[in-house]
């Protein structure tokens, strides 16, 4: 069997190797994705995000159990930050999902955010394509926290679950900071804790304000206690209903197109930038330009425009 057939058959090693190829951005990555792309497009992609300690992984673990119960195959990509100092990382998210470690229908891959060109989202996007081609029905992307990178990663999903928990002391901050913008469904986890109701009220308040004109578009809010396995069935039901709504209204299709469009932009921009960088490196041109500008002989913007023109000329020649 060749590499593509093995991935398509969902063979563990082949899928894992393909993910490594994507992660390491090795030479064959683009060819691989080009071959896999037509095989995908079937999986539903969920993004799951929330602060550290919000119980994301436990919730994902419980959702996997339910999805497996329906006979679906599930791929998980858990993204954790790399250390800015050593470049290393500890990837521990799958710890809470280890009860599925021996299940052939579940594939969990931990990814470090590394120093990817164009951010971690590029690698994650292609990792999703690999799992999609391998026939996983659901692909869950899990990220810690809600920084810029995470928002980008969440942009790769068909729908996003934002997990909020009581007792973190940052509920109101999170709401103020507009983090809620990225969520499709809000999950209030640890609902067994007293303050859970308070967060619920706050979330409802924000949604009521936002959708005062068109309350039918309000995002669903679910209450779960993942550690106690409570509320997960209801959550799944809400996800299913929401997905159906996305699908029937054509929003799912539109989202996917928008995503691809954004990706085309990003990849083109990356490629151009990388060319410009390569070009700049030749002869260490910029140092001379700095001298030229500092000498006051050339007005800076006009000077840069001139260089740009010559870049395009040279690029055309190549």
């Amino acid at each position: 069997m060749n590499r593509i057939d093995s991935i398509r058959a969902g063979e563990l090693r082949a899928v894992a190797r393909a993910l490594t190829c994507v992660e390491n951005d090795s030479g064959s990555r683009e060819a691989l994705i080009d071959e896999l792309f037509p095989l995908g497009g079937r999986a539903l992609v969920w993004g799951v995000t929330g602060a550290p300690g919000s119980g994301k992984s436990t919730l994902v673990d419980r959702l996997i159990t339910r999805l497996r119960g329906r006979g679906s195959r599930v791929g998980v990509i858990a993204v954790d930050p790399s250390s800015p100092f050593s470049g290393g990382a500890i990837l521990g998210d799958r710890l809470r999902m280890q009860s599925h470690a021996e299940d052939e229908g579940v594939f969990i891959r931990s990814m470090a955010s590394r120093g990817y060109l164009g951010g971690v989202s590029g690698a994650t996007g292609d990792a999703v394509r690999v799992l999609d081609a391998a026939g996983f029905d659901y692909i869950i992307i899990e990220t810690i926290g809600v920084g810029q990178t995470e928002i980008e990663v969440m942009g790769l999903s068909d729908l996003v679950l934002l997990i909020l928990v009581p007792g973190m002391g940052d509920e109101i901050q999170a709401l103020k900071a507009g983090v809620m913008e990225i969520g499709d469904l809000f999950v209030i986890n640890k609902s067994d804790k007293d303050e859970a109701r308070k967060i619920r009220a706050e979330v409802d308040y924000v949604l009521d304000m936002k959708y005062a004109e068109n309350p039918q578009d309000k995002n669903p809010v679910a209450m779960t206690a993942a550690a106690l396995d409570q509320g997960v069935d209801d959550l799944l039901e809400a996800i299913d209903a929401y997905t159906e709504k996305l699908r029937s209204s054509g929003r799912l299709e539109k989202r996917r197109r928008d995503r691809l469009s954004a990706e085309i932009h990003r990849i083109l921009a990356e490629k151009i930038e990388s060319q410009v960088r390569g070009w700049l490196r030749v002869d260490e041109r910029t140092q001379q330009w700095v001298d030229a500008i500092l000498d006051g002989v050339h007005p800076p913007y006009r000077f840069i425009q001139k260089q740009l023109d010559s870049f395009f000329r040279e690029a055309k020649v190549r």
């Binding site: 550290p52 436990t58 500890i90 521990g92 710890l95 809470r96 396995d229």
Partner: peptide, 10 residues
């Protein structure tokens, strides 16, 4: 009762 799963913060 179910079973406990550890919390690891590294």
């Amino acid at each position: 009762f179910g079973e406990y799963r550890e919390t690891v913060v590294l």
